[in-house]
C-alpha cells in the first residue's frame, strides 16, 4: 500500500504536476495562435517570439522593480511587472501591425502571404529580443520557491517520495484559469467580443453591420499581446528565460492549436494539455514508479524511458502529423481541413 502511494506521489511529482503547468503555458500560447488564425486568418509564426518579447519586457521591468527594492513578498515580483509588460507588448504588436500587416490587409492579400510575412516578422522580433536582452539564460524569479517542498512533504506524510509544489506551478495554473475564463466571458458576452466573432465569421457582413474592421484587428492584437506575455512570463518563471527556447516553443504551440482544432479556443486549451501530457509522459523515466509497483523480481533494469528528453519536440511533431492524417479538423472541429 505504501509502495502504491509512493508510486502515485512520484508520478504526480515528476509527470502530472509538471505536465499541468506546462500544459497551461502551451494552452495560453495556443489560444493566441488560434485567435489570430480565426480573426486575422493566418498562422502567426511570430507567436513564439512575441512570447519572448513579452517576457523580456516584463523581465526588464521586474529587474527595475527589484532594484528599487519593491517585492510582493512570497510571490514573484514579475507578477507586478506583468501588466506593464503586456502594455509594452501590445504597443509593439500594434506598431508591427501598422508597419507591416496593415499594408497586406489593404491589398486583401491571400492569407498564405500573411503566413510568410509573419515569418519575416518572427526573424525581426527574434533579433530585437536578442539584441536587447542577449541570448543567454536569464533568471528573474524571486519570492518563495516552494509552497510545499519535497522534504516537507516527506516529513509530513512519512512517505519515501516527496511531492514538491512549486509557487510557479500554482501561479501558472491559477493565472491560466483566470485568463481563460476572462477570455471566454469577453468573446461570448461582451459587445466587442461578439463583434470579433462576427468579424471572424464574415468580414463583409461585419462591415455592413457597422463593425469597424481596424478596431477588431487592434483589439485582437492587444488580446494576443496579453496572452503571449502571460504565457511567456509563466514559462519563464517555471523554467528560465532564453530567447531560443521560446522560438522552439512554436512547434508545441502550433501542435496544440492544430490538435485542438484551429480557430476553436476550447480546442486550443485541450490541445495544450494533450501535447504537454504526451511530451512529459513519453520522455519520463518510469523506473522509479515501476519500482514501487512491481515485485522485486520484475523490476526493470533500464530507465524505462521511451524517448530521451532531447527528442521531446519529436513528440509534438508526431502527434501533429497523426492528427493531421486522421482528424485534420482537430479534436474540437476547428477550421483546419
Amino acid at each position: 500500500m505504501i509502495d502504491f502511494l509512493n508510486a502515485i506521489v512520484a508520478l504526480s511529482n515528476f509527470v502530472l504536476i509538471p505536465a499541468i503547468s506546462y500544459g497551461s503555458q502551451l494552452a495560453l500560447g495556443a489560444l493566441g495562435v488560434t485567435l489570430i488564425y480565426g480573426i486575422l486568418r493566418f498562422s502567426n509564426f511570430a507567436h513564439g517570439d512575441t512570447m519572448a518579447f513579452g517576457a523580456m519586457a516584463t523581465i526588464l521591468f521586474t529587474w527595475w522593480l527589484q532594484g528599487l527594492g519593491v517585492s510582493l513578498g512570497p510571490l514573484p515580483t514579475a507578477l507586478l511587472a506583468l501588466p506593464i509588460g503586456i502594455a509594452i507588448t501590445a504597443l509593439f504588436l500594434l506598431g508591427t501591425d501598422r508597419l507591416v500587416y496593415q499594408f497586406y490587409r489593404r491589398q486583401k492579400a491571400a492569407p498564405v502571404i500573411l503566413v510568410i510575412v509573419s515569418m519575416g516578422v518572427m526573424f525581426v522580433m527574434n533579433g530585437v529580443v536578442r539584441f536587447i536582452i542577449g541570448v543567454d539564460d536569464q533568471r528573474f524569479a524571486d519570492g518563495e520557491r516552494f509552497i510545499i517542498s519535497a522534504r516537507d512533504f516527506r516529513e509530513m506524510t512519512g512517505l519515501a517520495e516527496g511531492l514538491a509544489l512549486r509557487t510557479s506551478t500554482v501561479i501558472t495554473v491559477i493565472t491560466a484559469v483566470l485568463v481563460v475564463a476572462l477570455l471566454f466571458w469577453f468573446l461570448n458576452k461582451t459587445r466587442t467580443g461578439k463583434s470579433m466573432r462576427a468579424f471572424s465569421d464574415n468580414e463583409d457582413l461585419a462591415l455592413l453591420s457597422g463593425i469597424n474592421p481596424e478596431r477588431v484587428v487592434a483589439i485582437t492584437w492587444i488580446i494576443v499581446a496579453a496572452l503571449a506575455t502571460v504565457a511567456g512570463v509563466l514559462y519563464g518563471l517555471d523554467k528560465s528565460f532564453k530567447p531560443f527556447t521560446y522560438f522552439q516553443l512554436l512547434l508545441p504551440i502550433f501542435a496544440a492549436a492544430i490538435v485542438g482544432g484551429l480557430g476553436s479556443p476550447i480546442g486550443a486549451i485541450a490541445g495544450g494539455f494533450v501535447i504537454a501530457f504526451s511530451e512529459v509522459t513519453v520522455t519520463y523515466a518510469f523506473r522509479k514508479v515501476l519500482g514501487y509497483l512491481m515485485p522485486e523480481s520484475l523490476q526493470p533494469d533500464g530507465l524505462v524511458q521511451l524517448l530521451s528528453t532531447d527528442y521531446k519536440f519529436a513528440v509534438s511533431f508526431a502527434i501533429l502529423i497523426i492528427v493531421l492524417l486522421i482528424r485534420p479538423t482537430g479534436l474540437f472541429r476547428g477550421k483546419a481541413v
Binding site: Y37, G38, R41, F42, S43, K108, A110, P111, V112, L114, V115, S200, D201, N202, E203, I258, L262, G263, L324, P328, K335, A336, V337
Partner: peptide
C-alpha cells in the same frame, strides 16, 4: 487550412 483561413475573408 492548417496555416491559412480564407473562409469569411
Amino acid at each position: 487550412r492548417s496555416i491559412t483561413n480564407p473562409e469569411g475573408q
